[in-house]
Simulated scan of single mutants.
Amino acid sequence: MKHFGDFVALLILAVNALFTGLLLFTAYSPHIQPVTHPVLSCLGLTFPIFLVINGCFLLFWLVIQRYKSALLPLLGFLLCYSQIRTYLPINFRSDSLPEESIKLLSYNIMGFDGATKKDGKNPILTYLKESDADILCLQEYATVESGRHLTQKDVEKELKDYPYHRINTVGSGKGKGRTNKIACYSKYPILSAHVLDYPSEYNGSVIYEIKIDEDTITLINNHLESNKLTKADKVVYEAMLKDPEKEKVKSGLRLLIRKLAEASAIRAPQADSIANNIASSRHPHIIVCGDFNDTPISYAHQTIAQDLNDAFTQSGRGLGISYNQNKFYFRIDNILISKNLQSYNCTVDRTINESDHYPIWCYIAKVEN
């Protein structure tokens, strides 16, 4: 009987080894070039699944008191510690902030939720006005001309505390899409703004030079390639979760993986272009933010953040899920900062759900030498 128990334990250990290998493979999948291997580059999406599975194995070995076997999933966790911390940081909030800190807020506003007014007000615009942020970086920015809806004059009236703003149309399909604009509203002078040159039809990035006291910072506001999932595709995804029949899951996964892979391959050169602009910045202080449309375990995030710190990893806590529709539970909105800056209390703000994204904000200050 003892030999049979040892055999079963050995078999479970082999299965554990397989899942630990898969955990490490997904953790390091951001090194896979999406243009060459688009499907494999999407494996980072499954990282939390294998993280949970290996956690269950660790608990299993501890419960049955096979401590040597528990070293296997523990080793897996140690080898991908940085990815775990990126995905699920745990930080204490800071009650005292440096006097010179600024508050930056990034928000995909989904065209102000169709630029509608409720009782003469737009909830997203009201939120921005009351956010007390020093710099607002907005994606999918759009207003309309009709007075019955939100106009540019309405926005400027409500955001009068932001005397400097730039609104740029991005993508090669200019004029075709209503929300293919990126905006920055700032309490500090915006010295320049130009759209980065990379291929996309409705998405893009804008790089600003902003004068903050004696320093000029480089700020890059991004809306990277979306995953091209239609409402019908998202219905398929939700149906898979509610009723996971074999054929339904098989056909649904094939559709979703194809679309996710296509978008990942398009995002890769966009991320490369942003990284090149970061490397060539004339100013030592750099902030990169916006909707990356990809998870923290992805080629896009890793490439853009290679010389920067992730503000949420540095000072946030939890999963920080920033997309709030169709059960796609991922953090795809980011604030990244150069290593001579420090973030405080980075927060994905779930108090407003008018857009399909939650806003992300943090306080930023220079690192004291």
Rank of each mutant, 00 (worst) to 15 (best):
C80V: 07
S82V: 04
P98Y: 06
C80I: 02
F77K: 00
D119S: 14
G114M: 12
R93W: 13
L51N: 00
T116E: 10
F50I: 13
M110T: 13
I102H: 02
L75H: 03
M110P: 11
L72P: 02
I90Q: 15
A115Q: 01
L105W: 02
F50L: 13
N54V: 04
L88F: 08
C80E: 05
K103Q: 05
Y87Q: 00
V63R: 11
N54I: 06
Y81Q: 14
R85D: 11
I102M: 05
P73C: 00
Y87W: 03
I53F: 10
L97C: 05
P73N: 00
F92A: 06
L88I: 13
N108F: 02
A70G: 12
L71E: 10
S96R: 15
G76H: 08
Y107T: 10
S69T: 11
Y87T: 09
L79E: 05
L62K: 10
Q65G: 09
L104K: 02
L105Y: 01
I64D: 09
N54Q: 11
L51C: 07
C56R: 09
T116M: 10
A70F: 04
Q83T: 14
N54S: 06
S69F: 15
I102S: 02
K68S: 07
F60E: 12
L104H: 04
D95T: 15
L97G: 03
L59R: 12
T116F: 10
